[in-house]
Structures are given as C-alpha cells and as structure tokens.
C-alpha cells in the first residue's frame, strides 16, 4: 500500500505544472503519441502535410488499395455513385453479421427453422438477422447498379476488359451468395424459392435429367443421368430440397462462395489500381 501511494505521489510530482512546460493534456498527448506502441501502430502523425497524407495511404494495408492521389472526377459521387464501395461495405457487413448468426444457427432440418425463430424472438440483438437479410438484398441491388454505372461510363473498355470480367464473375457470385442464403431459414419461402430456382438445373442440357440430350447418356436401357446423378443433385445433395441441400447451401454460403468472392475482390481492387485507377475520360 505505501508503495502505491509513493508511486502516485511521484506521478503527481512528475506532472505537476512547471514553468516553461506545456499544459498537462498536451503533455499526455505527446507522451502517448511518442510512445513506441503508438508509433508502431500508426507510424505517422496526423495527416496535416501532404507527406503524411501520402504516408497514410501507403503505409496502411487497408487503405493502400487507393492510390496516394486520385483524379478529381474519381471522387465525385455524381460520377461513381459509390456503388462499388457500397457493395464492398455490404460484403463486410454480411461477413460480420453472418459470422455472428453462425453462433446460433444450426443447418439441420430439426433446428434450422427454430433457430431462426429464436434469433427473432430470444437472441439479444437478433436484429442481426434483419441486417443480414436486408444487407443481402441491398448488395444485389448495389452490385447491379455498380455494373450499370460501369457500363454507362464505358469503363469496361480497354484496358479494363479483364477487370470487367472479374466483376461479372463477382456479380454472379453475389447472386449465388444471396441464393444459397435464401434457403437457410428453412421456411416455406426458402424451400420453395430454392425448389423453383434449382428445378431449372434439372433441364441442363446433357447433365440434367430432364434436359435435352440427357437420354443420350445411357447404356442401352440403363440411364446414366437421372434424378440421383444430375446437375441438380450435385447442387442439392439429394433428389429434392432436403437435409443435404440445407447443408450444402450452408457450406457454400458461409465458406465456399465467400472465399472465392474475397479472393476475386482482392484481384478486382488491385486491378482497378493497376488499370489506372477508377476510370475517367482518357
């Protein structure tokens, strides 16, 4: 006890206002700002000079997606609509809320539905589910609008062909993410939307058991493509939307597609920079 008191006294003395010294708040700020921890995490002071502004972007792995300087048109909302950025932001929202939902949700026929009901009724801040679902819808819309804007400004033209292609794949992945997530609440809306949606896969030419040409894949009267071996089956893990489909969609929704999408996003953003930043008139 006495030691603590002594130590406090020493601190008091140390910070007691002395003449010719700056006031305490500034000294505390300087102390913290000068500490090794602070410097190692932030590396630079407040971006008051252009040098530091450049450093902020350059030395931060998250911000260095951006160039240090950017065309004035590129920051104009009128021009960009910020739809790509919003899509990415929504992806992050979906990742975080989705991760949290996974703590309560079990992808089995017994529990899936009741877990969602529990989320709605019992889980604290179960509004997470609403955020996740509406965020997903919003993401589909923003990604479409992003594509729309990119088309309208002709930004798919050389040298951005490759990145446009990556973008198209990302658009498809976004739809698939939303589609796979649609099943997980395991309610009537979910099961029938996925049933209707995946029924089309039955008609895949050659690989769907009700698709043109699937009869050709047969050995005599032994059909090779049937409800248990066609494209839809691979998707659903069953002949109809059931336990297998729920699990497969869950895995694809939570791990498979996000992994691919995140990788492609990294490529997409990197290509934006490599292709000369956000597009503008040449």
């Amino acid at each position: 006890m006495p030691n603590v008191r002594e130590w406090l006294n020493s601190l008091k003395q140390k910070f007691a206002p002395k003449e010719g010294q700056p006031p305490v708040p500034k000294r505390v700020r300087d102390y913290i700002g000068g500490s090794q921890i602070w410097r190692s995490f932030l590396r630079h002071g407040l971006p008051k000079t252009d040098r530091i502004r450049a450093l902020v972007v350059l030395s931060n792995v998250l911000l260095h997606l951006h160039p240090v300087k950017i065309r004035r048109s590129g920051v104009k909302l009128r021009y960009t609509w910020c739809m790509g950025g919003l899509t990415f932001f929504l992806f992050l929202v979906e990742t975080v809320t989705g991760l949290l939902l996974m703590f309560y949700y079990r992808p089995t026929l017994e529990y899936a539905y009741v877990d969602i009901v529990e989320l709605r009724e019992q889980v604290p801040l179960g509004v997470m589910r609403e955020l996740h679902r509406w965020g997903a819808h919003a993401m589909v819309i923003t990604v479409w609008l992003h594509m729309f804007r990119v088309f309208m400004t002709g930004s798919y033209k050389p040298p951005r062909e490759f990145n446009w292609n990556v973008g198209v794949v990302l658009l498809v992945l976004t739809l698939l993410l939303s589609f796979t997530g649609y099943l997980l609440p395991w309610d009537q809306l979910a099961i029938w939307a996925i049933t209707v949606g995946t029924n089309m896969a039955r008609a895949t030419p050659l690989l769907g058991h009700e698709g043109p040409g699937s009869q050709l894949l047969a050995l005599g009267d032994v059909k090779l493509i049937h409800a248990g071996s066609d494209a839809r089956f691979a998707l659903l893990g069953g002949r109809f939307v059931g336990a297998g489909a729920l699990l497969r969609f869950y895995v694809l929704h939570c791990v498979g597609i996000p992994l691919v999408a995140a990788t492609l996003m990294a490529i997409h953003f990197w290509r934006v920079r490599k292709d000369g930043g956000i597009s503008g008139p040449l």
Binding site: L63, H66, P67, K69, R71, R72, G74, K76, L86, G280
Partner: peptide, 24 residues
C-alpha cells in the same frame, strides 16, 4: 464534364477516404 476534372489530382486522404467513410 469529367474531362475537366480528370487531369487534376487530389489527395486520397482525406478526399476519397472521407467521402467513403460518410457513404458507409
């Protein structure tokens, strides 16, 4: 109109990052 603004460059920080943040 975009051409007018193409050649002029601005700092990403804070122009872009800030607008992004507000959009978020």
């Amino acid at each position: 109109a975009e051409k007018l603004e193409t050649d002029e460059k601005v700092w990403c920080w804070p122009d872009l990052v800030y607008t992004e943040l507000i959009a978020l």
